[in-house]
């Protein structure tokens, strides 16, 4: 009955903070170290949305945030929905995805600047960036954007001092201990060091994302020719 006792722990360690008349935040203190926090938040968010159509949910690395359309919000109802969550419904399959990345200069607007900041050669930055198996920590910011971590300490750089207004689709960027892929255009503040030809977010089928919290992602360096061939497919 390990799962059951875990469920009890789960309930005991839920911290609810009421933020406003229509928002609250939930934090979970996991006793079970086998449990992946990011994954738990993601599946709980889906569970909440499946069972309540009067709320909006955001799953971040540290917490789940719920906003109610109804005021005053029904905290008890949200608690009940959460207590009906079965941790066993969390997909335990180890999802892995290999993401091809081209680090060629024409895609990597900030790579040279980054290598200078770090006092490393461009090749060293690429080698370090592509040698780690990352894990999706959260989805958010803009459509389909995945926060992948952790970046090797040797290649951590801050956000751009001035965010760009337009980021090309597929840009691979880094900031502090996270790396991410801009699935759609729009403004962005992370230094860009490459691009992927892989389509990671399809607006026509936005609920079938290839990267969700818990997914492991390996980056594979590809040439410009390979990029172009893959892009055509």
């Amino acid at each position: 009955m390990a799962a059951k006792s875990w469920v009890m722990n789960f309930n005991l360690h839920t911290k609810i903070s009421v933020i406003t008349e229509d928002m609250l935040e939930l934090e979970f203190n996991l006793d079970d170290s086998n449990m992946n926090q990011s994954k738990l938040h993601w599946y709980l968010a889906e569970h909440l949305l499946k069972n309540q159509n009067d709320i909006e949910v955001i799953a971040s690395e540290e917490m789940i945030s719920v906003r109610s359309k109804v005021i005053p919000m029904d905290i008890h109802k949200i608690e009940m929905t959460i207590s009906s969550f079965e941790p066993s419904s969390i997909d335990q399959f180890d999802h892995r995805l290999e993401i091809p990345i081209c680090y060629e200069e024409s895609f990597a607007n900030d790579l040279e600047e980054v290598s200078m900041q770090l006092n490393l050669s461009i090749e060293e930055v690429i080698a370090i960036h592509s040698s780690v198996i990352y894990e999706v920590k959260a989805i958010g910011f803009t459509p389909g954007f995945a926060y992948l971590g952790d970046i090797d300490k040797k290649i951590r750089v801050p956000r751009l001092s001035k965010p760009r207004l337009e980021t090309p689709v597929g840009s691979v960027a880094i900031a502090n201990d996270r790396t991410g892929i801009y699935c759609l255009g729009g403004p962005g503040g992370w230094p860009i060091i490459g691009a992927t030809p892989m389509n990671l977010f399809n607006p026509d089928d936005s609920h079938s994302m290839r990267l969700i919290p818990g997914t492991k992602a390996a980056f594979k360096q590809i040439s410009m020719e390979e990029f172009k061939t893959m892009e055509k497919k």
Binding site: E46, L49, E56, I58, I139, G140, P143, F145, S206
Partner: peptide, 11 residues
Amino acid sequence: RMGSRHIGIPQ
């Protein structure tokens, strides 16, 4: 659009 904020879709 409501109900898609968890996948990064703004309102």
